[in-house]
Design a protein around this nucleic acid. Structure first.
Lengths: 217, 217
DNA sequence: CGGCTGCTTGAGCTCTATCAACCCCCGTGG
DNA sequence: CCACGGGGGTTGATAGAGCTCAAGCAGCCG
């Protein structure tokens, strides 16, 4: 999948001073931070927690577009492009976030060249990641997609127990399909299922094992 | 699909003066400007032509990730994120482009706040567009996707005759499927096929007709 | 006018969704 | 502490959307 999971250190730009000047919010698990269609009035900075950007299509299918871990910004894309949100931000577990009003956010951005560069970098990487997922929807089978999604999500947030549903929504597969792939992987000795948790037998070798998945040469 | 087809006027930043100081290239139709995996040594500014960003997966399936019309930049994403190209840029027809070397490009960027903002905006829109296409791959049937791809591509570049193949690669469908959808649309009286060209009977109403495609409520 | 590439249409197949039933895990309240 | 309820997970059987393969046609260029 080649998705980047390195963090871009945008949080350096939220200093301990500035932190105190912004409104703090606590969101319980599985609550909505903002909804698709709403107009952004600022951006969020997640101090602690985990947020998923999701979209529910009319026929019910859900997709998990991006995830936001602690120390990252949320809602910047829509603000920058000056559009209503194209998806909904939901907490995956309890989350604490600062709210930075639009004017203040733009002022911070425009007065800090390095911050702009950092956002350019972040958006560039997210764009690549999204395009890779799109092309993989076209060029790869579910099995590969599930494997890669599992790996990426666990890398990004190892503590969290990703549900089969979430893994599926991230890579375009149904819960049942994810479940079947995991059972197969366990039978083949690549992972260990412990209740809802999943452990790699050898994390480093895991992806290499499957790097040529679907590449019938 | 809700993809943006408005152009962001980045070309204002390439003045007629600066134009002359850069190396000009002519690419015939169906030639490669850069290849997946190569490291960017600068960015391109397309003065005239049409370029597609494509990816060929190991099993042969191709995808059309983004298109670049005249007066737009190309290759900026990889340069900004400091990564090798994740896809290949191919001309769809004859194209003329300026090459701006890495150092010069970064210098231009860093010395011009408005240019940075314009790039932030462009990347933000492209990210949204890509995520929308991803979620549509999950939540919509081919027929809807073909219809929306057709509309978007024609809006972006009305003069060009998009092949069934290209339409398919843009929305995740095979050529045969695109062909079948088009025949159906013609039978239903929504489009007119004139050789390889496709005309909408009523462009404005076209998308509305299908806006509730796949939305069995 | 010949050949090449793109387009069309048909028939069959396959991957993955769908539907359904059951189990397991965990949290909650009596 | 136990009952129970609900959501997540598993597994099987079935169906169908869209791909694959194949063959013929149409448009376009040398």
């Amino acid at each position: 999948m080649d998705l980047n999971y390195e963090k871009i250190n945008l949080h350096d730009y939220i200093t301990s001073d500035t932190k105190n000047s912004f409104e703090g919010h606590n969101f319980p698990a599985h609550s909505v931070i903002y909804k698709e269609g709403e107009h952004p009035s600022g951006i969020f900075f997640i101090t602690d927690g985990l947020v998923g950007l999701t979209y529910q299509s009319k026929n019910g299918a859900e997709s998990l577009l991006r995830i936001f871990t602690s120390q990252s910004f949320l809602g910047h894309r829509s603000l920058f492009s000056n559009e209503p949100y194209h998806a909904t931000a939901t907490t995956l577990h309890e989350t604490r976030a600062l709210f930075i009003p639009k004017e203040k956010a733009m002022e911070m951005l425009l007065s800090n060249k390095e911050l702009m560069v950092a956002f350019i970098k972040l958006l560039s990487r997210d764009l690549k990641n999204s395009e890779i997922r799109f092309r993989d929807m076209i060029g790869k089978r579910v099995e590969s997609r599930v494997i890669e999604a599992l790996f990426y999500l666990k890398k990004r947030h190892p503590d969290y127990v990703w549900t089969r549903r979430e893994i599926g929504e991230f890579c375009g597969a149904k819960t049942e399909t994810v479940s079947r792939v995991l059972t197969k992987l366990e039978k083949e000795g690549h992972i260990i299922k412990e209740g809802r948790k999943v452990h790699f037998r050898d994390e480093e070798k895991f992806l290499n094992l499957f790097s040529d998945n679907n590449e019938e040469s």
